[in-house]
């Protein structure tokens, strides 16, 4: 059976991971390549790198970090932040990324999704969608690192993007992000119901039960967290043991 994925997210700015700095177990605290290596060994099913200031600072993503990471891990990883063109996608894939996620660039220019998907296949094109609830049953798409309301309906945008060729959706609830109050299950369910590609739920993970909820009630294919893992509040292996005890299919990466 296909398993549900547990994905640590490394939010970077200027080559450093910004949410993980206090996690004492990282010898080179905040170094994305070191953190990626540790996650590669400790049960992560995939990694997500987000250069969270690439768009607002209007600069390209750090290819060197991508290259070094790719050399050091043997699980898939996606990279996003500041992607504007098919050429940006090409550079990241050639540097060793398995997938590339687009957010602001895709909202401003939706054909970027179709062009990139045609060139490299939809399996490596991820729509990164930051959503905020604006009224009951309505979430809007926010861009520029969550700063700007695009006015677009998040569920509609998810559908449109998959029609254009996005092979996966990284769905972040801005409302829940950083709160540790759980994923936005309602938003996740609305999107998984509307599309036929895997959805990675993100934002709000605070405890093991949150993962169970978003997999079962939200139908998420994968769940992402950052500080929860970086700070050692929860290990991936403990989370997997818990999920397995609740009959959620996971990739076993621990000894019984």
């Amino acid at each position: 059976m296909k398993t549900k994925r547990i994905i640590p997210c490394l939010d970077m700015t200027e080559g450093k991971v910004v949410k993980g700095i206090q996690f004492v177990n990282f010898r080179d605290a905040g170094d994305p390549v070191q953190m990626a290596k540790i996650y590669n060994e400790s049960g992560a099913d995939e990694l997500v790198f987000l250069d969270i200031t690439a768009t607002t600072q209007n600069r390209p993503i750090l290819l060197e970090v991508v290259r070094n990471t790719a050399r050091n891990i043997s699980i898939p990883f996606s990279v996003g932040g500041g992607i504007r063109s098919v050429e940006d996608v090409r550079q990241l894939l050639f540097a060793g990324a398995d997938k590339v996620s687009m957010n602001t660039g895709a909202v401003q220019n939706p054909t970027l999704i179709s062009e990139a998907a045609r060139e490299f296949g939809n399996q490596c094109i991820v729509l990164s969608l930051d959503a905020r609830k604006v009224r009951p049953d309505r979430w809007n798409v926010f861009t520029d690192g969550g700063l700007k309301d695009s006015g677009m309906n998040a569920v509609e945008w998810a559908k449109q993007a998959t029609t254009l060729g996005a092979g996966e959706i990284l769905l972040t609830s801005i409302d829940q992000d950083g709160t540790k109050k759980g994923f936005d299950v309602e938003l996740t369910r609305a999107v998984t119901h509307a599309v036929t590609v895997p959805v990675i739920a993100s934002g709000g993970a605070g405890k093991m039960e949150d993962f169970f909820d978003v997999f079962t009630k939200g139908n998420a294919d994968a769940a992402l967290a950052a500080s929860l893992f970086h700070f050692g509040d929860l290990t991936i292996n403990d989370l997997k043991k818990y999920l397995e005890s609740k009959n959620i299919p996971i990739r076993k990466t621990y000894e019984k």
Binding site: T3, D45, N122, Q123, T196, V197
Partner: peptide, 11 residues
């Protein structure tokens, strides 16, 4: 399966 492509870990 509803979700295509298959992306992820499988047995």
């Amino acid at each position: 399966e509803k979700n295509i492509p298959q992306i992820g870990w499988n047995e």
